[in-house]
Amino acid sequence: MGKMAIDRSQSTLVDAILQDEIARGNRALRSLAPVIAHLLDSDGPSLVSDAIVARLRGMLRHIADQLLASLPLDAKNALIQSQAQSKLIDHLRGDESLVDHLYSVVLEGVLTKQVQQRVGVDPILSPLMQELIASERPEIAEVAMMALAAQSRFCQGQERMELPLGELPSQLLWRVLTHFEATELALHPEGVAGAVQTIKRDFDEAQSRIGLFARLASSMQGGAIAALDIGHAGLALFASATASLTRQEREHVVFACHEGQTFRLVLILIAAGLNINAIEGQLALLGGTRALPSGFETISQAHSQELLRTLTGPEGELS
């Protein structure tokens, strides 16, 4: 009878493992069709590659590690920690808006590197950033200096496939913290609450890289149009200034810079006030291979703004 009991406990353990694995397999099968469809559909370069997936995985892991590191754990809890890490990553991976954001971060890193290799734009210190650092207004120079430091940390972080929690937009950090609180960690809940408190206290969106570039773009006021040149401003400032001028999400602007999204970028840049020649210059910088069909020059700024609103608004594919 004792033997039977052991057998049963073993079988429940196996059941649990099986359940986990089958569920994982189900998820993979469900998402297979859209991924394959995407790969088959795009005639240009694909939006996903092994490098991008690896970076996404690395950043998710880094986020989970930072959350766990904020807990009062010691070496004895190493087992709890590794179990907790995979649970937490499971939660985070399921959050679409987080994954979207991380994707745009990775894409920005990849594109920054491409632009550097293709046309030699310094990923950190672009000519416009140099001008801003030398600005006569000390407050602009200071923000520019801080943005520069943040950008250099970003490039390094991308190499290491890391993303500090402080670099997340406030809403996403909040979501991440909510996932953190919801994850069963076999720990005192007070420990988690305290850790969340500390992370919240240390966070300041205005000090994050994206926050700093947004402040920089805002402080340039009318001059922000000078940043609509990737070769002059660098991709980071370009994206922030374009987002600010067209009131688009910065993520969308970065997304539009992907080779396969030429038309989206054209539309955004017309809306921002660039003429078609300048836009073609930008496409060339990004390595666009498809020629623009004629007729684009007839789209007015107002019309493109309207199109952007309808095509990428709530009813569009990106929301």
């Binding site: 406030s170 909040w174 205005a206």
Partner: peptide, 9 residues
């Protein structure tokens, strides 16, 4: 709601 320092245009 978030209890976080936020920054926006």
């Amino acid at each position: 709601k978030l209890g976080l320092r936020i920054a926006r245009e």
